[in-house]
Design a protein around this nucleic acid. Structure first.
Length: 471
RNA sequence: UCCUCCGUAGCUCAAUUGGUAGAGCGAGCGGCUGUUAACCGCUAGGUCACUGGUUCGAGUCCAGUCGGAGGAGCCA
């Protein structure tokens, strides 16, 4: 008999003979008709388990009766219309083979009951067997496929930027050190410093915090490029939206300005939403029912409407003019607090909002300096953009890059950075410079937004966070 | 890192003014049933996070440590 994935079995013709393989979600027994068992089997290919009906006349029915949640099984049978109410079709089993028993069911951690997400995080190797984490895994996969497909259709090349970096000037946060030196016997130079010349790379090295500087080099010849890979931040962040290891999409577009940047991000979000609605409705229905009501309507809205754009200066005016009581005061020139961002996207606009042109003093050195008086702002701004989304906050951070060497140099100096560290980055401005723009999109935050999952640690298979590196 | 809350059975939680440990779910066994968050009965299961202190007596009060959650900052 042909082995069929369960998602295909649901669509097959009644009467077909088939074999399915998977893990038991639940089993219920009945004494009717001399005894029969209903076994719900899931193989991860779709949300729903399929119901297997095993009758007492199976040669190994005594064994079948002992099957419990978590067992792996192989079932031969015939697909038939279900006599019961919970499902359209089911499999009348002609053979049920147990491949792997659950040893000592009393200790099986992922037993058939409701568990808290906090507890499931402690058994991350088994939580994938639950409805929620199966759905998260499928949605996460679908989103990453959508992004690659969208970027390919927009003529972007995927560039694999390094994970280990010898550059200490990426400037996006605390870095994890990479070293093969013996901690118990660290070589020192004459003046008592650690002698990194004896380390693996002959210099200090770290895990990357961003592929942006590297990918800008490829944009300066291939025009449209992006990275999609893991990044690392050694910040002691204990929140529902930060990880020490997370995945980021970083497009970089040559001959482009801030608005081209926003248009790309907006198109990416639209594509992700509409692809999910088309491909993963089974999982979305679960999230809408059990995790966040209204999720599907929100994704439908995202799939149709472009992102709303406002300037930082306008955002400040909205916040100053509203009746909301904020813990922190709103003031032009200081960064918006989380509560301010949430108000804008969740209460005022009720949709994703791109906020552009921030005061230069609160943004990075490489962001392009705007002309004095842009947007009627009271101070000088840079061409930066943050895209804020309901429930998550900041999902995208980007900018048009400073392509003018003299302006870049004075910004590096102004911020107290060492110009020598940026020699190759500056070369891009010396040799055929070009206006360009890019952004970083936090992939896990996108998954959160598309599933309604509240804690970012529950949308990545094995979360890395302070004091969390088990598995 | 800061603020708040929490840590009791495999899981989710109770335990009165400090008086010596309890339920539901899960698991095992039995009953019933084309079942599907099933239902009924029985059984097993505890170093009350750890260390120290107060007390005749601490799950309960105090101090410290460790761990978790939510919020803040940093950011994606």
């Amino acid at each position: 008999m042909a082995w069929m994935k369960i998602k295909d079995a649901f669509k097959a013709q009644a009467g077909v003979e088939l074999t399915i393989k998977g893990w038991v979600r639940t089993k219920r027994d009945s004494k009717a008709d001399g005894g029969l068992s209903f076994i719900a089997v899931n193989d991860g290919t779709c949300f729903d388990p399929i119901q297997v009906v095993a009758r007492h006349d199976l040669s190994n029915y005594e064994e079948v009766a002992k099957i419990g949640t978590g067992c792996s099984v192989e079932v031969d049978g015939v697909l038939v219309e279900s006599q019961g109410k919970g499902q359209s079709v089911e499999i009348q089993a002609t053979a049920v083979r147990v491949i792997g028993w659950v040893q000592d069911p009393d200790t099986y951690p992922a037993s058939n009951k409701r568990h808290s997400f906090e507890y499931l995080r402690e058994i991350a190797h088994l939580r994938t067997r639950t409805n929620t984490f199966g759905s998260v895994a499928r949605v996460r996969h679908a989103l990453s496929q959508s992004i690659h497909r969208f970027m390919d259709e927009q003529d972007f090349y995927w560039v694999h930027t390094p994970i280990i970096t010898g550059s200490d000037c990426e400037g996006a946060g605390e870095m994890f050190r990479v070293s093969t030196l013996d901690f118990c016997n660290i070589p020192k130079t004459d003046d008592g410093q650690v002698d990194f010349s004896q380390d693996f790379f002959g210099k200090e090295s770290h895990l990357t915090v961003s592929g942006q500087l590297n990918v800008e080099t490829y944009a300066s010849s291939l025009s449209r490029v992006y990275t999609f890979g893991p990044t690392f931040r050694a910040e002691n962040s204990n929140t529902t939206r930060h990880l020490a290891e997370f995945w980021m999409i970083e497009p970089e577009i040559a001959f482009a300005d801030l608005h081209d940047n926003i248009e790309l991000a907006s198109g990416m979000l639209r594509t992700c939403a509409s692809d999910l609605l088309e491909r993963r409705m089974d999982d979305l229905e679960f999230f809408d029912l059990r995790i966040e009501k209204g999720l599907i309507d929100r994704l439908k809205m995202i799939a149709e409407a472009p992102v709303k754009t406002i300037t930082y200066t306008e955002a400040i005016k909205i916040l100053e003019g509203c009746n909301e009581k904020f813990e922190y005061d709103v003031k032009w020139g200081s960064d918006m607090q989380s509560e301010h961002e949430r108000y804008l996207t969740e209460k005022h606009f009720k949709q994703p909002v791109a906020v552009i042109n921030y005061p230069k003093d609160i943004k990075a050195f490489y962001m392009r300096l705007n002309d004095e008086g842009t947007d009627g702002a009271p101070g000088q701004t840079v061409a930066a953009v943050d895209i804020l989304v309901p429930g998550v906050g900041e999902m995208v951070g980007g900018s048009q890059r400073e392509e003018r060497l003299d302006v870049l140099d004075s910004r590096i100096t102004e911020m107290g950075l060492d110009i020598e560290d940026y020699w190759w980055y500056r070369d891009l401005r010396k040799y055929g410079t070009v206006p360009h723009a890019g952004y970083g999109l936090g992939f896990e935050r996108l998954v959160q937004f598309c599933t309604g999952m509240q804690n970012i640690r529950d949308v990545i298979p094995f979360p890395r966070a302070p004091r969390q590196a088990e598995f």
